[in-house]
Amino acid sequence: MKTERIRTEQVGFTYEEAKHPVLEDVSLKIHEGEFVAILGHNGSGKSTLAKLLNALYLPEKGDVFVCDMNTRDDQHLWDIRRNAGMIFQNPDNQIVATVVREDVAFGLENLGVEHDEMVRRVDEALNSVGMTDYADASPHTLSGGQKQRVAIAGVLAMEPRIIIADESTSMLDPLGRAEVMNTVRGLNRDKGISVVWITHYMEEAAMADRVIVVSDGKIELEGTPRQVFQQVDKLRKLHLDVPHMTALAAELREQGIPISDQVLTVDEMAEEVLRLVCPSN
């Protein structure tokens, strides 16, 4: 059994002025090295959940544990935030400094990391996200995807165990989205950092190890992308997209073709079609 990184226990949350809770009875676990996508439409409560995971918000009901530390515990606040690094939606609104290198150092400065160690970690973090060449650039000259990579480097320099990305690709173009997604995937694979990837893009969720679908503040579906996406009707009811190929497979099955319901990608679909229609089979 792998080490647990995040655990929420029957978490509930209501905004001050709101009548209804945004989150109700949410219990989930994220393990070491896992890449978990949290999928939901706007207003489903997924962003609130993200902010509960590094003590930006405290739960109204239930508890949130990050690396076995309760987020209610003031004493561990900085430890929790250092361990669960967060990347936000708007690339512009999370860069503090006027030079890339200094922005990456921001978290380390706050933690009081000693100078030489800071320089080492900043260089390493910039290298990990492929932004070394831009170390001395002004953030406003970068593209959206590059800005998000700087934000990732800023989190990475704090040597976190978990990265939480709160709709970090929704303001980017397709190239920027791929750039950011690949960067985080790489960190997950190479450094074993757990990832909580919050999104409303089905294509991105399809790349995760596990998908949790949130709607109206509750967990509606949970499982591997294949398990989740084969529930075409349910996803549509939750106002979410279904992968094109999965939907196509469902249509073909309706027409009596015995095609697998596990198809997600174009290549998988091509293999299935070849298997079914080639005369040799």
Binding site: N90, N93, L108, N110, H115
Partner: peptide, 27 residues
């Protein structure tokens, strides 16, 4: 104002807590 709100959250999530016990990259 929206940017200010976002930025405050982002700074907090990166452990900003004022000038005390802070070190600097630029010395």
């Amino acid at each position: 104002f929206r940017r200010a709100g976002d930025l405050a959250l982002a700074m907090e999530s990166r452990c900003y807590h004022g000038g005390e016990h802070r070190t600097r990259l630029r010395v």
